[in-house]
Design a protein around this nucleic acid. Structure first.
Lengths: 155, 155
DNA sequence: AGTGAAACGACCGTAGA
DNA sequence: TCTACGGTCGTTTCACT
């Protein structure tokens, strides 16, 4: 969990271990060991270190579509005042699964996952635009997700 | 892996199992069973079903910052021609970890993960803007990631 | 869909190179 | 940081509800 100022130098073996776990997060250490040419204990120690260092995490990810959330959108937001306060309020909305403070013509980008267009409209009008300091929003409705890798960085 | 047109109705127990695995993807079925009040075998069967149905996946996610990728940005792209072709070309760039086709004033949103500003500038000028049909780009440099949940939906 | 039991395999701590 | 090994715990299969 230690945040670092210098990047952790990963050797080829650790990269291979991470790749194994990106394919299947529940693959056994023994099996990974066979694939990367290391003993079960060594793999376990490396995974422990990578996890403790905050380089990697093994988690469940869900598919919104399979759960009935057919509508996703990215909302670009221009604000006045403290963008951190507004970002926090956005984070409190369940349907908002991603919030990032940005530099550019938007101060915040927020991703929304919801069931349908009605819910999206309601979220925009009743929740997001009502937050104090939200000056303008621009919505980009998702048509097709083309590529998604799992990187992680909230702290 | 079966894509469905109707959402899968999850009962409270399955939701609880998914929550357990969102906290720690390597938690044992026995331990999850204790937490949700089910036998180990029953938990395993449910996880198997959820995974096969494509509702959930257990995978490793990495933290770009810890790996030395200090610069992230979202790029909004306006295109002429077939946005699918352009989205595919963007997906082929290693530093691009997220590509989505959108409706709105951008046709495509692409997230970039790179080491520093120089690399970002190079990517924008030498790779992205050189793709045939890319008319205009607008870049939103990440200042702080505030919230990130793991949803998954590429197919 | 669920439980329980027995065989098997994975995981964990520790010792040693 | 790795391998080796033994004890413990998790997983798998199967018979049963």
């Amino acid at each position: 969990m230690t945040p670092r100022s210098r990047p952790i130098a990963l050797d080829e073996v650790s990269k291979a271990i991470i790749e194994q776990l990106q394919e299947d997060g529940r693959r056994s250490y023994a099996e990974i060991g066979k694939a990367v040419g290391l003993s079960e204990a060594a793999v376990r120690q490396r995974v422990q270190k990578l996890t403790d260092a905050g380089v990697m995490q093994v988690v469940a990810v869900t598919d919104p579509m399979q759960l009935g959330f057919y509508r996703q959108a990215m909302v670009g937001i221009r604000v006045t005042g403290d963008s951190r306060v507004i970002a926090q309020k956005l984070s409190d909305i369940t349907a908002v699964d991603y919030v990032v403070l940005t530099a550019g013509s938007f101060d915040i980008l927020a991703e929304i996952v919801c069931e349908n267009d009605d819910e999206l409209i309601e979220l925009l009008n009743e929740r997001i635009r009502r937050i104090d300091g939200v000056e303008a929003t621009e919505t980009f409705v998702y048509l097709k997700l083309q590529k998604q890798l799992y990187n992680w960085g909230t702290r």
